[in-house]
Computed example of a mutant assay.
Amino acid sequence: MNGGQGRGAGNAHDRGAPATPASELIGRLRRVLRPEELDCACRETLDGALARFDQLERRREWRRQFAAARDHKERITALLAFLSELDALSEAESDRSVFEELALLFIEIARSAEAGAAALREL
């Protein structure tokens, strides 16, 4: 009876945030390391340790995703600096290849924005 309670407590974290590879591993460990014949105190200690480890791993993954989003923001900032050349151009520009280069900057900004958004959605 207590065994079902321990499993439910471990799954509460899973419903609140996306599973990470470490969380999936912890779930498998929980199933293997929690035989029903464990006494209550031992089971509670094990469940607590696994839950704490799971939370630490989730926070580590969240920090990684947050850092990735910041990296994409910095990349966009750098690309915008190059894109500022657009202000010095006119439609009469003789070197038409400059427009293609600037168009590629817009594409790179969009790609980096999508990747940054994806990283934030993982949080």
Results as ranks from 00 to 15, higher is better:
Gln55Trp: 06
Ala9Phe: 10
Arg31His: 05
Gly4Gln: 13
Glu37Asp: 14
Ser23Gly: 13
Glu100Ser: 05
Ala88Arg: 13
Arg58Cys: 00
Phe66Ala: 11
Gly3Phe: 07
Ala81Ile: 05
Arg64Cys: 05
Gln5Thr: 13
Gln5Glu: 15
Ala51Ser: 15
Glu114Asn: 09
Arg63Gln: 06
Phe66Ser: 11
Ala113Ile: 02
Ser23Arg: 07
Lys73Gly: 01
Leu120Thr: 05
Gly116Phe: 08
Asp71Lys: 11
Glu57Ala: 15
Ala115Ser: 13
Gly4Val: 00
Ala115Arg: 12
Pro35Tyr: 01
Arg111Ala: 08
Arg111Ile: 03
Arg96Ala: 07
Ser112His: 15
Cys40Ser: 11
Arg64Met: 08
Asp87Val: 04
Asp54Tyr: 06
Glu61Trp: 08
Glu101Ile: 04
Glu114His: 07
Ser23Cys: 07
Gln55Ile: 03
Arg7Trp: 09
Leu80Met: 10
Arg60Ile: 01
Leu80Glu: 11
Asn11Met: 12
Leu105Cys: 11
Arg34Ser: 15
Ala118Gly: 06
Gly27Met: 03
Asp95Pro: 00
Arg59Cys: 01
Glu101Val: 04
Glu101Arg: 14
Arg31Val: 01
Met1Thr: 11
Arg7Gly: 04
Glu61Ala: 15
Ala118Pro: 02
Glu24Gly: 02
Glu57Asn: 02
Ala78Gly: 12
Ile107Tyr: 09
Ala9Gly: 08
Arg31Leu: 02
Arg63Thr: 03
Ala113Lys: 03
Ala78Phe: 07
Asn11Ser: 06
Glu93Ile: 01
Asn2Asp: 14
Leu105Thr: 09
Leu80Ser: 04
Glu101Thr: 07
Ile107Asp: 15
Asp14Tyr: 04
Ala17Asp: 07
Ala113Met: 02
Ile107Gln: 15
Ser90Glu: 09
Leu46Arg: 13
Arg28Leu: 07
Glu24Asp: 08
Ser97Ile: 01
Gly8His: 08
Ala69Pro: 00
Ser90Val: 02
Leu38Val: 06
Arg15Asn: 09
Ser112Leu: 01
Glu93Cys: 05
Leu56Tyr: 05
Ala110Trp: 04
Ala113Arg: 01
Pro35Val: 03
Arg7Ala: 12
Arg64Ala: 15
Gly48Arg: 14
Cys42Phe: 02
Leu120Gln: 09
Gly8Thr: 09
Glu122Cys: 08
Gly48Val: 00
Ile109Asp: 03
Gln55Tyr: 05
Lys73Phe: 08
Val98Glu: 05
Leu80Tyr: 07
Glu24Thr: 06
Arg28Val: 01
Glu108Lys: 10
Glu37Cys: 00
Arg75Trp: 06
Ala69Trp: 05
Arg121Pro: 00
Thr45Lys: 13
His13Ser: 12
Phe53Thr: 11
Ala69Asp: 04
Gly10Asn: 12
Ala68His: 09
Leu105Pro: 00
Arg43Asp: 14
Pro35Ala: 02
Pro18Glu: 11
